[in-house]
């Protein structure tokens, strides 16, 4: 089957898609966008989190055919979406690097998409709100402490720079 989908603002097409394929497979293996990660493929880890028509979802649980005609944003599109200059990071991405929130990094893309969504909805979340918003994203390396630091840091930096934006 053929699937047409807009990914990170670009219209993309894939042919000969097997009907049982997930959006995750489509992105990773057919569209050259392996940033979204294949950690569990059962919706229990959040590593494949992407935005589908703006809404964070597990790409592993979206059938590729369901994405036909839809709009997808992956970790590869976060910086551009945030208006970062070419070669620069979005505030959330930069905060993850700066706060030491990245170790092996396999959970990072999904966490970034989830955190980006949280900060868009709530620019100044409480710790409990951050925890609840990120509770669908497993991390095995960090114990989450530095991830919480990163989200707080991104929120604080955005608040400071956002005065004029």
């Amino acid at each position: 089957m053929r699937v047409n989908v807009t990914v990170n603002g670009r219209p993309r097409q894939a042919d000969d898609v097997w009907e049982g394929e997930s959006l995750l497979y489509l992105l990773r293996e057919r569209l050259g966008l392996p940033g979204s990660k294949n950690a569990c493929e059962q919706g229990e880890c959040g590593s494949c989190t992407v935005r589908l028509d703006g809404v964070p979802v597990c790409a592993c649980l979206v059938a590729a055919g369901q994405a036909h005609g839809r709009d997808v944003v992956t970790v590869e599109g976060l910086a551009a979406r945030a208006g970062a200059a070419e070669g620069h990071l979005s505030p959330v991405q930069q905060a993850f690097v700066d706060a030491g929130a990245v170790q092996c990094g396999f959970c990072t893309p999904g966490l970034l998409v989830a955190a980006d969504d949280l900060l868009e909805r709530d620019p100044d979340p409480s710790d409990a709100d951050i925890r609840e918003a990120l509770s669908g994203n497993l991390c095995r390396c960090t114990g989450y402490e530095k991830i919480l630091d990163a989200v707080r840091l991104a929120a604080a930096r955005t608040a400071r720079s956002g005065q004029g934006a």
Binding site: L33, P34, S36, N38, V75, L78, L89, F96, T108
Partner: peptide, 16 residues
């Protein structure tokens, strides 16, 4: 870190 937050870092399962 930079490669890991942009999705460009190539894990073994990303190879093609």
């Amino acid at each position: 870190g930079g490669l890991k937050v942009t999705g460009e870092f190539a894990y073994a399962s990303d190879l093609w």
